[in-house]
Design a binder for these strands. Structure first.
Lengths: 217, 217, 217, 217
DNA sequence: AATGAATGAGTATTCATTCAT
DNA sequence: TATGAATGAATACTCATTCAT
C-alpha cells in the first residue's frame, strides 16, 4: 500500500518537493539559455516550471541563489561524468577521461552561456565570487591532479612516453576541452564533438602514447 | 613653441571626437569588468569617461551598441597582435604565433568577461547574434587557416614531424589558448602566461618539431 | 450587522479589481485635466489613485493605453446620456435630445481637454488614429442619424416645419453643442449651459417647430 | 539701386530676419501637425526650417514661446479673414461673415490640433493660461458683438425676422463653425466646407432672413 | 504550501537649453 | 549672428520581492 492516503486517490498525482525543485532548476536553465540571465524573469521561470512565482521563493532565497544552484548542479553533473573509472591501466584510464569529455561535450557546451552569465552576476559580490571561484578552482584542481597522476603513472609504467611534462599536458588537456566549449558557442560548425576528438587524438593521445604501443599493436 | 597649432594655443586643450570616443569605450570596458554588464549603468560609464550621459548617446545609439563597439574593437586589437609576422621559416612563424598569444594572454583574459556578457546580451536579438558570431567565426577561421598553412609548410619542408594532422593541431592550439583564457577567470593562480607557455611547449612545440631539431642543437 | 458579508467582516474592506480600475481611470482624468497629458506622469496618477506605479501597469499596458481607455469610457458615458428616450412623439424626442445635451454639457466640457490631448498622442500612430477616429465617426454618425430620423418624422407628421433640411439641421445641432464645448474651455463665462440652451432655442427649437405650436399655445 | 551691397551679389541671397522668423513658425506648425507637440522636437523644427537649433533660440525664448507665437499668429490671420467688410446692408454683411468662415474653414480646421495642444501646454502655467484665454475670449467677444450688431441692425431695418434673439444666434453661429472645425478632425468626410454651408443655410440664413426676402426676390 | 496582486527602487533614453567657436 | 556638441533633469517602464488570502 502506498504511503499516500487512499482518500486522495482521485486528486491529481502530487509531486514531491525534490521533483518540483528539479523542475524549477531545469526551467531556469532553459529560460536563461533562450533569453539570457537578465531577460529570464522570475515570472517566465515560474511559468516554464508551471508553478507560481511565490513557489520559486519557497525553494530559493532569490534569483541569484536560484541560478547559483543551477550552476552548482551543472558542475556536480559534469564531475560525475568526468570520472575516468577505476581502471588501473593508465592507458584505459586516460581513454576513459577523454571519452567522457567528448561524450559530455555537447551538454557542457549548451550550458556554458548560462554559467558564464551567472558568474558575472555572482561576481558583483566579492564574497560570493570568491566562494564560487574557489569551488570551481578546486574542482579543476581535483580533475587536473587525477589526470596528472594517471599520466605520471603511465610514464613510470612505461606505457606513456617519458618526454613530456605531465602537469602541463594535464592542464593543456583541460584547456583544449574548455577552448572547444568556448568556440562551440559561436562556431558550432567547426567546434563539435568530432573536432574535439581530432584535437585530443593529435595533441594528447599521439603525444603521450609510446610509439607502436597503440597504433603499432 | 607648443606642439598644437599656434593659432589656438590660448584655448584649453580640446579633445577630438576620436579621443572622446575612445575614452568612452575604455570607460565602458573598465566599468563592465568591475561591475558586470547590467550593473554598468550608462550613468556610471559617463562618470568614468568624464562626459555626460547625453554625450554617450551622441556617440553610440544605445548601451547595446556601445558595448558591441567595445567588443569589436577588442577583436581588432587581438587580431592585429596575433599576426605571426612575415617569416618564411615555418618554425619561426609558429614561434611568432605562440609568443604573440602568450604575450597578449593577460590582456585577452582581462577582457573576456566583458565580451562574454556582451555576447549574451546581443544574442537576444537573432540577427545581431548571427552577425556577431559570423564575424567571430571568420576571424577564428582566418587564424586557424594561417596556422594550418604554417604547420603544413613545415611538414613539407621537413622541419615539422610528418605524423600529425595539421588542422587538428591548429584548432587544438587555439583551443588551448581559449581554454586558458577561460580558466584564468576563476583560477588565475594556475592559469597564467607561464602555465600557458608550459602547455604550448608540451603539446605544440614538442609534438610538432622534429626531435633533435630544436632541443638537440 | 455590518453591510458587508459577515464571513469577511473582520478583514479590511477589500476593493475589487473593477473598482480599482475605475479609480485609476478617474485619477488619470483628474491629473490630466489639472496638468496636461505630458505633465500627468504615471507617478502622479498612481499617487492620485492611491496605488503604486506597478499596479497601473497591471491594469493598463502603457500610459497611452490608459488614456485611451479613459477616452473610450467617456464616450460610452456620453452616448448613454444622449439617448433621447423611446417616445414616439418627435417633439418629445427632440426635446429629450436637447435637454440631455444641455444637462451633460458641463461634464462633457470638463473632459474635453483630456480627450483632445489623447487624440493628439494617439494620432502619432496611424493605425491607432484610424481606429479611434473611425469609432468616433461612427458614434457621431449614429447620433446624427437618430436626430435626422426624428426631425424627418416630425416633418412628415406635420409637427415640424416642412421648410428645413433635416440632415443639415441634425448636423448643425451637434455642431452647436461641440462648438459650445470648445468655447467653454477658454470662455466659460459666455459658454455655459444657459447660453447653450439659448442658442438651441433660437436655432433649433424655433427653427423647427411649426409656428403657434409651441409659442402660441 | 537695391539697399543690399552690390559687392555681395555673388553670395547666396541673404534672407531677412522676418522671413527667417516666418519660416520657423511655419516649420513649427508643420512638424506639430505631423507629429504632435511633444514629439515636435526643437531639433526637428530646426531641420524643417533649415536653420540650426541655436537660431531657434535667437528668435524665440523657448519652445513654449515659439508655439505660443505660432498660435497667436494663427489667431491674427483668422481675425483678418473674418472681417465681414464695410457694407452697410446687414444682409450683405452677414453673408460676408458666413462666406469668410466657409472659405477659411479648411485652413482653420487644419490648424486646430496644433492650437489645442499649445493650449494644453501653456495652461500648465496659470498666468499664461489666463493671458491666453483672455486674449481668445476677447477675440470671440469682438466677433460675437459684431455679428450681434449686424443681426440687430437687420432686425431694426426689417430685413431680418424680428422673432429671434440676436445674441443667441450670433453665439450659435460661432458655435456651429467651431463645432464643424472640431468634427472635421476625426470625421472629415462629413464635416467639410460643403456641410458647413448647408448647416449655415438651414440654421442661420433661413432662420434669420424674412421669408421671400432672399429666395423670393 | 501555493498563489499572484501589489509594490517601488532602479535605469535606459530623450530633448530643451546652453555656450564655445 | 549662426552653429551644433555637450549637458543633465525628467520619465515611462520593468521586475525582484513580499504577503494577504
Amino acid at each position: 500500500m502506498p504511503p499516500s492516503s487512499p482518500a486522495r486517490a482521485q486528486s491529481p498525482p502530487r509531486v514531491g518537493p525534490d521533483e518540483k525543485r528539479f523542475r524549477i532548476l531545469e526551467a531556469a536553465r532553459r529560460v536563461c539559455t533562450r533569453e539570457g540571465y537578465e531577460a529570464a524573469t522570475m515570472e517566465a521561470i515560474a511559468a516554464e516550471a508551471r508553478v507560481s512565482k511565490g513557489t520559486l521563493y519557497n525553494f530559493f532565497e532569490s534569483k541569484e541563489h536560484l541560478f547559483l544552484s543551477t550552476v552548482l548542479q551543472s558542475y556536480d553533473e559534469a564531475e560525475a561524468r568526468f570520472d575516468g573509472g577505476p581502471s588501473e591501466d593508465p592507458r584505459v584510464r586516460l581513454d576513459g577521461f577523454l571519452e567522457a569529455m567528448i561524450e559530455s561535450f555537447p551538454h557542457v557546451a549548451a550550458g556554458m552561456m548560462v554559467n558564464l552569465q551567472v558568474w558575472a552576476v555572482v561576481s558583483r559580490d566579492a564574497d560570493s565570487r570568491t566562494r564560487m571561484f574557489e569551488d570551481l578552482s578546486q574542482r579543476y584542481g581535483r580533475l587536473g591532479a587525477d589526470l596528472e597522476t594517471t599520466l605520471s603513472a603511465g610514464q613510470r609504467a612505461g606505457v606513456f612516453r617519458p618526454d613530456f611534462a605531465a602537469a602541463a599536458v594535464a592542464a593543456g588537456l583541460l584547456a583544449v576541452l574548455d577552448g572547444y566549449v568556448y568556440r562551440s558557442v559561436f562556431d558550432p560548425g567547426r567546434a563539435g564533438a568530432r573536432d574535439l576528438r581530432a584535437s585530443f587524438d593529435a595533441l594528447i593521445r599521439e603525444r603521450v602514447l609510446v610509439s607502436g604501443t597503440e597504433e603499432g599493436r
